[in-house]
Write a protein that binds this DNA or RNA. Structure first.
Lengths: 187, 187
DNA sequence: TATAATTTTTGACCAATGTCAAAAAACGAA
DNA sequence: TTCGTTTTTTGACATTGGTCAAAAATTATA
């Protein structure tokens, strides 16, 4: 559990009391490749911290699987839309590798948010960070060419290309697998 | 100031004490069309609540002005990236109409976040809502055709088309003005 | 290993959308 | 109203990237 807390405290330091409370809530989960954390249509009631491994969120569009996001070491993972709103998820969450995760339920988190201002702050700060991340992806998606998107990925998150099948990467970038393959062959 | 608080309390109800503290911080601003709230390169130190009017955030890309977002009545408006990180903004914020705004500085907000758990919660909830909004725009940007994007806009936010020049709408959708014009003529 | 299943690459073709330039329309100020 | 500016539309053309199908390469399994 050390690792979990050292990562959490990168966002915001916590008192002993808050850490204890969190400790009581987070449950360790170990799952193997290809298992699912969530299927579309289900309400996502868990927030996960990914200690080790790789995960993807994907949804179906015209019969194709579109990768919405990847999660790697030290990412918080959930279907944010479903977790926040309580609506059924449009996305599936599936393991790309065997993973070690820490899980907390929305109910538990809600209680902690009531009890601890500092946890409320932690969550607020996490949202800030994730908002900014998403904004960057959005701007890229709107105006970069397929080649630029690939170059970006190579520079900023090369581990994605090393750990994830190409088809999943292509839809993550918003391009076809064939186009991604052709771009790659130019390098 | 009634209006401001009734909108804020749509996100999260506040105690009298928290409201008073907020009241002391929010300053009313009235500006006219085409004035700027922020120029690229400046650090955005203010968060605005837009009571009346219309605003856009835009940045420059290859000599073109790209509309990043629109703000209308009851939106919170800032350069989120710059406001959160303290980095110089890449975007400009400009009034599309005369506006009535309420302004609070980052410093003031930071103090309130320290003093009031409930304001921390308010902000956390605002981020949740804005995160989800952005996620929807992102998914659209990645996989919808120009025509679908226009139809979406017509259905979900028709006021944008009524209040904003077409060029600004086109870059907001991530398509060229000419394409938007052609699509429009089909309706 | 050998075989099957999956993933990636390649080729041919096509549709959607961008670009540039000019005309038309709408808007604003004198 | 009229003139000048800005915005929107239209036309011709180029280009990016998508689609479908098949081959090649890689990976998994018996």
């Amino acid at each position: 559990m050390h690792h979990l807390f050292s990562q959490i405290e990168n966002y915001h330091p916590l008192s002993a009391a808050a850490k204890e409370a969190l400790q009581d809530c987070f449950k360790k989960i170990t799952l193997s490749k290809n298992e699912s954390l969530l299927n579309e249509g289900q309400v996502c009631k868990q927030l996960y911290f990914l200690e080790k491994g790789a995960i993807r969120g994907f949804y179906n569009l015209d019969g194709k699987e579109i990768t919405h996001w990847f999660g790697f070491e030290n990412d918080f993972v959930t279907s944010f839309h479903s977790f926040i709103t309580g609506d059924p998820a449009v996305e599936n969450i599936q393991l790309l590798e065997g993973c070690v995760l820490w899980s907390i339920s929305k109910e538990q988190l809600t209680q902690l948010l009531d009890q601890f201002h500092e946890i409320e702050r932690l969550v607020r700060i996490v949202y800030e960070k994730y908002y900014i991340r998403l904004e960057e992806r959005f701007v890229n998606a709107q105006f970069k060419t397929a080649k630029e998107l690939y170059e970006n990925l190579l520079e900023q998150t090369p581990h994605i290309l090393e750990r994830v099948p190409l088809g999943a990467v292509a839809s993550y970038l918003g391009i076809s697998q064939e186009t991604l393959s052709r771009i790659r062959s130019q390098f």
